[in-house]
Simulated scan of single mutants.
Amino acid sequence: MSDYIPNDLLIEVLARLPVNSLIRFKSVCKSWYSLITSPIFINKQLNHSKTNTDELLIRLYTATDKKEHYLLFHDDEKFGDEYSELEFPFRIKFGYFRVVGSCNGLLCLCDDYFRDSPDIILWNPSIRKSVTLPIPYKPQCPHMFVLGFSAHPTTHEYKVVRIVYEKGEDLNYLKFPSKVEIYTQGMESWRGIGSYVPPHGIVEFMWLQVFMKGAVHWVANDPGCWLLQFGNVV
Rank of each mutant, 00 (worst) to 15 (best):
K30P: 13
Y158R: 10
A220Y: 08
Y183P: 07
D111K: 01
E157D: 10
K167P: 14
N43D: 14
G194T: 06
I202K: 02
Q229M: 14
L9G: 11
K159M: 12
K30G: 01
Y113A: 15
D8E: 15
T184A: 11
G201H: 03
C103D: 06
C110P: 12
Y165E: 05
F73N: 03
Q209S: 15
H143V: 11
K179V: 14
P142Q: 13
S21P: 15
K213G: 15
V160A: 07
N104Q: 05
N47P: 00
E87K: 10
E77P: 00
Y83P: 01
G101P: 01
P18R: 03
I202V: 12
D119T: 14
D81I: 15
V180Q: 01
L86H: 07
L228V: 15
H69V: 08
I40C: 00
I135H: 01
E188C: 13
I135W: 00
F230G: 10
F25C: 08
P139R: 02
K66R: 11
Y70K: 06
L133W: 00
W32Y: 06
M1E: 05
W123E: 05
P142L: 10
D76Y: 02
I163G: 03
P6K: 03
E87L: 09
D112K: 04
P6L: 07
G186S: 13
W207Q: 10
E204Q: 13
K167L: 11
V160S: 08
V100M: 06
D54T: 05
C103L: 06
I121Q: 01
